[in-house]
């Protein structure tokens, strides 16, 4: 891990940046209904990019196609320059409903990605323990998911995604099923994680505040069919306390700006 990454607002946008994920002409039909229409997007390496839009705009569909869990009707996704044909080891998914195996302990759940790869038990348990500790669940290794709160379950889901050491973390509204306090804590954790891990985060959310608070880049999707309507790079100071950031003019202006753009979709 690098000792210190430059703070986000200090970083000048480089002219050439490697795009770890590229989306080209992506469309998705569900029967006659077009969920996504000709999406072209670049996801620069090491950034936290949010997909934001009204419900039913296809943001989860887009994420699942990047994950290789859904087949596009047209167009392609490239990850590290290679066309996506299915899930791959360079991507890990964090599920909205956590998707934890109820019959398995936290330890086995977190190690599950490695278990599927055939990593020997002692090795994968060691890795899993490390990430369980990293997400703040040390001591809960032998618990079962039903014994944990919603927030803790999502931490397990996050640890499982981290344990396979993927370059891209795909998060499908990961905080929508947890309460507001936990959610804010999670956002802090995510920012921390983003600083210490050299990973790209693609993050689906329906919360404007959340997107502006955590993202380097926000992709605004419109609805019916889902298309990219705007890409915003929030210019927000990251060196203040969470409270200062949430009161910062630029933060509030960006939230307001996005809300103005999204209003038209609210019916």
């Amino acid at each position: 891990m690098p000792a210190a990454l430059p703070r986000i607002h200090e970083r000048t946008m480089p002219a050439i940046r490697d795009n770890i994920v590229e989306v080209r002409g992506l469309s998705k039909f569900y029967g006659g209904f077009q969920a996504l229409k000709e999406i072209d997007l670049d996801f620069p390496e090491g950034e936290l990019i949010s997909l934001l839009g009204p419900s039913g705009c296809g943001k989860t569909t887009l994420l699942k196609m990047i994950a290789g869990l859904l087949e596009p009707s047209a167009g392609q996704v490239f990850v590290k320059g290679k066309a996506v044909t299915g899930p791959g080891p360079e991507r890990a998914f964090v599920f909205q409903d956590f998707a934890l195996m109820p019959w398995a302990t936290v330890l086995r759940n977190v190690a599950f990605g490695l278990e599927l790869r055939g990593t020997p038990k002692p090795e994968r348990h060691e890795t899993a323990r490390r990430y369980i500790a990293e997400v703040g669940l040390a001591g809960f290794e032998e618990r079962y998911p039903h014994e944990l709160s919603g927030g803790m379950r999502q931490r397990v889901g996050l640890a499982r995604a981290l344990a396979v050491n993927a370059d891209v973390l795909l998060m499908d509204e990961p905080f929508s099923a947890v309460d507001e306090q936990t959610r804010r804590k999670f956002q802090e954790d995510l920012l921390h994680l983003r600083r210490v891990q050299r990973k790209t985060f693609i993050f689906v959310t329906h919360s404007i505040e959340e997107a502006v608070y955590v993202s380097d880049r926000i992709v605004l999707l419109s609805r019916r069919p889902g298309r990219v309507s705007r890409i915003i790079e929030p210019d927000i100071p990251r060196d203040g306390t969470p409270d200062e950031i949430r009161r910062d003019r630029r933060y509030l202006d960006t939230v307001e700006d996005i809300w103005d753009g999204l209003k038209q979709f609210v019916d």
Partner: peptide, 27 residues
């Protein structure tokens, strides 16, 4: 069987056999 668990197994590149043995049957 919970489709989300099946998708989870797929997302971690579980084979069809692993999917059946580790997710479908226990669930």
């Amino acid at each position: 069987v919970n489709p989300s668990l099946v998708a989870m197994c797929k997302s971690f590149q579980g084979t069809r056999w692993q999917q059946v043995a580790k997710i479908v049957i226990p669930d």
